[in-house]
């Protein structure tokens, strides 16, 4: 398995220490890591899921807007961050692997290396109450 870029390695190490939910996607849109707080929202331990490719993501976590309406893929914050290289924020509802429904807010940031290569995106999300 190929080594991740050092920027992603350092972000993963940082995320392991965070109480906020963090996930990391590579430039190809593969979910390469999420931390323990994110596991609580997604309903699936990362050790069980392993690296999830872009095609599998939609099967594992169904996402809608809080009112139940469909979110176009290209409107998902992580997709916007990857494709447009801009930060993106949205209020979403996740239907997770445990059969739970979680309302969350997500902010995704593009990860751009010093040499301007796009490394992927980091999403921070938190569960909204009420």
């Amino acid at each position: 398995m190929a080594q991740q870029p050092v920027e992603m390695i350092l972000l993963k190490q940082w995320a392991e220490h965070m109480g906020s939910s963090v996930w990391l996607m590579d430039a190809a849109g593969n979910l390469v890591y999420y931390n323990e707080p994110a596991e609580q929202i997604l309903g699936l331990r990362f050790d069980e899921a392993g690296e999830i490719n872009a095609d599998q993501l939609a099967e594992l976590f169904q996402t809608t807007y809080p009112d139940g309406s469909t979110v176009a893929t290209d409107q998902l914050p992580v997709v916007v961050a990857l494709t447009k290289r801009i930060p993106s924020h949205a209020e979403l509802r996740i239907h997770n692997r445990m059969g739970e429904t979680k309302d969350i807010e997500v902010t995704a940031l593009p990860l751009v290396a010093a040499d301007q290569r796009l490394l992927g995106t980091m999403a921070i999300f938190w569960e909204t109450v009420g």
Binding site: M1, Q3, V6, I9, L10, K12, Q13, E16
Partner: peptide, 18 residues
């Protein structure tokens, strides 16, 4: 070892492995 005990422990997530 930055970030945790027991590092290095996984080639994919170890700086400099490649």
């Amino acid at each position: 070892g930055l970030g945790g005990a027991g590092l290095p422990n996984d080639p994919q997530w170890t700086s400099g492995y490649c």
